[in-house]
Nucleic acid binder design. Structure first.
Lengths: 211, 211
DNA sequence: TGTATCGAATACACGGATGTATCGAAAGAG
DNA sequence: CTCTTTCGATACATCCGTGTATTCGATACA
């Protein structure tokens, strides 16, 4: 695996990469990138380094690949879950907030890994672009789904994207607070409350229908 | 420097530690913890590793020491700056927000280093406590100073600490957005806007005086 | 000024992670 | 079923960072 030459993605290869991704996620979450060695990831995946070097050039590449992959998967999941909701059943802003919060979830391992990814991205323009692209995708999805949910709650966002950006920022900031005090339920409650107030702050009453 | 034995802090020692702290901040911000070696930090500080091992046990210890030290210094600065403001001159929420935002600033290097510190803290209970303590100090300071500023703007927070916690979360989340797109001024503007709306969302009109 | 302590420089030994080159087994094509 | 290709395992050479033990200069103190 040298340079940018594309290897054919046979079934075996795909499976190997999948297991390495998974192992990388676990190891990086548990011990942290920069501490974990190639060999540790391989061991956790049940391989030797031969498999690794046949699939990736460096730990950095594996990290990026893993993060992008899982990032996509999570976004797709979120999209699916929210698409399955009947917008007609949403009656209040509080409901919207709880719905989205539940759908997003709060995965400790993933947040840890993402925190480190962010830290790296702040130093690497290429990674920054990756992060920016992902955020844009989230914002776009949120914006559209929020608008349809808020309709049922009798509200309308003036600029859905700005609202979505605000919610993402709040999500990031409060996640850190939640996971810094993992045994304390209060940050979770404050988070929901803040979500709700922000939604109100960026929406107006939508004249027309609603409860 | 083995174990927890306390070396007497002579002038020379203090100066050496200061330079190592400074060099660590720069190197970690530039290249990232986990990539930087002991030797690189020492070189950046104009020392060899002898000085390092005479003052610290490991890079981790230096990182923690440096972060705590600077963290304290920044908080003290912030306190000083805000204490110098005449609360009587604050007339609007917008002014409060801009004041605090200006005082906090947005130091790229410091944010990078803190991002990595957070990532580590999510894995290490001892570091988590350090972070929590610092957050508490910030919140306490913000809460008190906000209350006095808001008074001039004709508003009053029901629970100043909750407001402060919300603002800290918003600050963290939006900082990431700002530094992810360093050349785009819009995140900065959105940030101020979000601050302002959150302040309104967590305060009520204070009957009595004000403009 | 002489002496003792302190602190940073230097030298060295060790471990361990990386990446490559080679081999053998398993999967896939005809 | 055979032949070919692919891919992971193994072995090896190399490099680099660490931490310690020792030295030597500087600084404080009497």
């Amino acid at each position: 695996m040298t340079g940018t030459e594309l290897k054919r993605l046979t079934k075996r290869r795909v499976e190997t990469r999948r297991r390495l991704h998974q192992a990388a996620l676990e190891e990086f979450a548990e011990r942290g990138f920069g501490v974990v060695t190639v060999e540790q990831v391989c061991a956790a995946a049940g391989f030797t380094r031969g498999a690794f070097y046949s699939n990736f050039d460096s730990l950095d590449e594996l990290f990026l690949s893993m993060w992008e992959d899982r990032s996509r998967a999570l976004l797709a999941d979120l999209d699916e879950v929210l698409a399955a909701v009947d917008p007609g059943e949403v009656r209040s802003v509080r409901q919207v907030v709880e719905l989205v919060d539940r759908a997003v979830g709060l995965d400790d391992a993933w947040f840890r890994v993402t925190a480190e990814f962010s830290a790296h991205a702040l130093r690497d323009p290429a990674l920054r672009r990756v992060m920016a692209a992902r955020e844009e995708a989230i914002v776009a999805m949120l914006a559209s789904v929020l608008q349809s949910f808020l309709h049922g709650a009798g509200r309308r966002a003036e600029d859905p994207k700005v609202l979505a950006l605000a919610l993402v920022a709040v999500h990031d900031g409060t996640s850190l607070q939640c996971l810094t005090e993992p045994d304390d339920p209060r940050p979770r409650l404050r988070r929901l409350d803040l979500f709700e107030r922000v939604v109100f702050a960026y929406t107006v009453e939508s004249t027309g229908e609603s409860a």
